[in-house]
Design a protein around this nucleic acid. Structure first.
Length: 575
RNA sequence: CGGGGCGUAGCGCAGCCUGGUAGCGCGCCUGCUUUGGGAGCAGGAUGUCGAGUGUUCAAAUCACUCCGCCCCGACCA
């Protein structure tokens, strides 16, 4: 492509609302423009990169036995009512009515549509397993879109769905996808890591997120420095501490003490002159309308996701003030486990504690010397808190490290959540009707491109890995008004096109500096400069964007040399 | 949804406090010079000052309402 004919508005300055580097560079490099909050237009350069990524995904998905389909973005409410998500998805689901007053939504994901497709056309175990995928625009009405391509409302996603006859087979499907994802991100030249993740209300023991390491990432996770354990902070387990032997002789008599206006852990610890570690926090949660008490050591924080998963409820939130008063008989801030009439869940952090402080379920009073077993009954001891930096790896006991990442992919084992609700069944060998086991697998397209930029840039701009690069080479004649330079560049350009090389010919009548800056900014991996001095010797200059390395190539060898580098880099990560 | 901030030329910003008819840099257009890392000189174009209402002789500036955008938090299959 001739630069002079391209729609490639590059810029020196960035809009003030671009916070992260990938967002700034995508705007400066003329890849994207914002239409409105969380919604972007891809310009030609940006769209080429998107298509490169999509093509890699297609190749690897096909290799893994998946087949591409294309489902509609508009989905009827009926399907969502059938799966139960019409009521549960919340405001992220953009709903609307057509002229006949029928209800629809814009698809944030496609489990319902794919399940309805498959249940009608797959009837027997002979047709299973199957894996279908699509690359589609999704819409999620995010509360707060941010970070450019990282969290959009409208965004491209590759989503795949697998259907299997049983757990064992489903596990194989999951593994195939897991491996396909590794291949995809490897080919993109990304440094990433699969981590264990929460699977949300979907349940199932398997869920991995593919995280691209980046400080600007939205997700916090922990990685073990010793073993391979890595997990999203939401999911990261805390090992059950070894239970110390508790001597009942050490128990002091329960004591009620006046603690006027001391509600928070800090206030109570200041007032009673005790460490937060000796106080037990009692939080009242509302799980699907029922109250639960969660006990945790004062310094720790409750991970609601763990509570939610433990209880198996659909909705979990901190109880309202009214609910707290109803179940504890006291205003917020004085809840405790003694004499409470709701289930009491206790985090491992409380397991060894003796003679601790809790609320007394009475305004302005706390108990001292509370002890488990004597003063209240425990429904369950389990892991309910967030990991802290001083914790150890739950697998091997090694040191853990907190890092940040961008979630570019997620593989889920869905189980029968949708197939059961929507009756996706088949007949097995024995003529028995069975429910299909499903899995779903997503990759955020725009996000992956942004992650690629986060990991591949310098102060001059983007440095595309060859497989994602919108063009492989850019040819710059230093001065187009010098006929010999222009014609040589033109000759190289035509030769490269003949060779099938994706090339930009910067034929603009601009100063060399401007063209160099633009070439660096848009991140083209290879640059051929045609200058007077070198050309006099029959040479042109090759510059490698990533390393800054320069070398002279004779006119004759230039095209084949460049082609060799491109092919090598394109194929290097294909397995 | 709670807290904070912003909205003035394509982009980045000043002007607002203290009301008097809008400016700077980059970019853009024309000409000349220049030509290996975002050139120099000269000339030029570009604004319903986010919208509405009010106060005032007079509003970018003050007040109220609305809209949009951003940040922090809450939320997030």
């Amino acid at each position: 492509m001739r630069y002079s004919e391209m729609f490639l508005p590059t810029g020196r300055e960035v809009p003030s609302d671009a916070e992260v580097i990938s967002h700034q560079l995508m705007i400066r490099a003329g890849m994207i423009r914002k239409l409105t909050s969380g919604i972007y237009t891809y310009l030609p350069l940006g769209y080429r990169v998107i298509r490169k990524l999509e093509q890699i995904i297609r190749e690897e998905m096909d290799k893994a036995g998946a087949q591409e389909v294309h489902m509609s973005m508009v989905q009827p409410a009926e399907l969502w009512q059938e799966s139960g998500r019409w009521d549960h998805y919340g405001k992220e689901l953009l709903r609307f009515r057509d002229r006949h007053d029928h209800e629809y939504c814009l698809g944030p994901t496609h489990e319902e549509v794919i399940t309805s497709l498959v249940r009608n056309d797959i009837k027997t175990y002979r047709q299973l397993p199957r894996n279908l995928y699509q690359i589609q625009t999704k819409f999620r009405d995010e509360v707060r879109p941010r970070f450019g391509m990282m969290r959009c409302r409208e965004f491209g996603m590759k989503d795949a769905y697998s259907f299997d006859v049983d757990e064992e087979s489903a596990e194989k499907s999951y593994e195939r996808m897991f491996n396909a994802y590794r291949n995809i991100f490897n080919r993109c030249g990304l440094k990433f890591r699969p981590v264990e993740a929460d699977s949300g209300s979907i349940g199932g023991k398997y869920s991995h997120e593919f995280m691209v390491m980046a400080d600007s990432g939205e997700d916090a996770m922990i990685v073990c420095e010793k073993c391979s354990y890595a997990a999203n902070l939401e999911k990261a387990e805390v090992a059950c501490p070894e239970k110390k032997i508790i001597y009942e002789d050490d128990w002091l008599p329960l004591e009620e003490i006046n603690t006027p206006n001391a509600r928070t852990i800090e206030e109570v610890s200041d007032f009673l002159k005790v460490n937060p570690q000796d106080i037990v926090k009692t939080l009242i949660f509302n799980g699907d309308g029922k109250p639960y008490a969660v006990l945790i050591q004062g310094y720790q924080e409750v991970n609601e996701i763990k509570v939610k998963n433990y209880l198996g409820v659909t909705d979990l939130e901190l109880a309202s003030d009214e609910m707290v008063e109803k179940v504890t008989g006291a205003p917020k801030g004085f809840a405790g486990p003694v004499n409470i009439k709701i289930p009491v869940l206790v985090d491992y952090s409380v397991i060894d504690m003796v003679n601790f402080v809790t609320g007394a379920n009475k305004e302005d009073y706390h108990f001292k010397n509370v002890n488990i077993g004597r003063d209240f009954k425990v429904e369950a001891f389990t892991d309910l808190r967030f990991v802290k930096p001083e914790d150890h790896c739950p697998r091997c006991g090694g040191k853990i490290k907190f890092v940040r990442g961008i979630e570019v992919g997620h593989v889920f084992k869905l189980g029968t959540k949708y197939s059961k609700a929507m009756k996706a069944t088949f007949l097995d060998k024995d003529g028995q009707e069975k429910i299909m086991i499903m899995g779903c697998y997503g990759i955020g397209i725009g996000r992956t491109v942004a992650a690629g930029i986060e990991q591949n840039h310098d102060e001059n701009g983007i440095i595309w890995p060859m497989p994602l690069a919108p063009y492989h080479v850019i040819i710059i004649p230093v001065n187009v008004n010098e006929i010999s330079l222009r014609e040589t560049a033109e000759y190289l350009y035509n030769s490269m096109i003949t060779e099938g090389i994706e090339v930009i010919f910067d034929d603009r009548d601009e100063r060399a500096g401007v063209k160099f800056k633009d070439a660096d900014l848009i991140g083209i991996p290879l640059r051929i400069t045609v200058g007077r001095k070198d050309l006099a010797q029959g040479n042109v200059e090759l510059k490698i964007r990533r390393t800054g390395e320069n070398k002279l190539l004779s006119l004759e060898e230039a095209v084949s040399h460049v082609k060799g580098i491109i092919e090598e880099e394109l194929n290097s990560n294909i397995t």
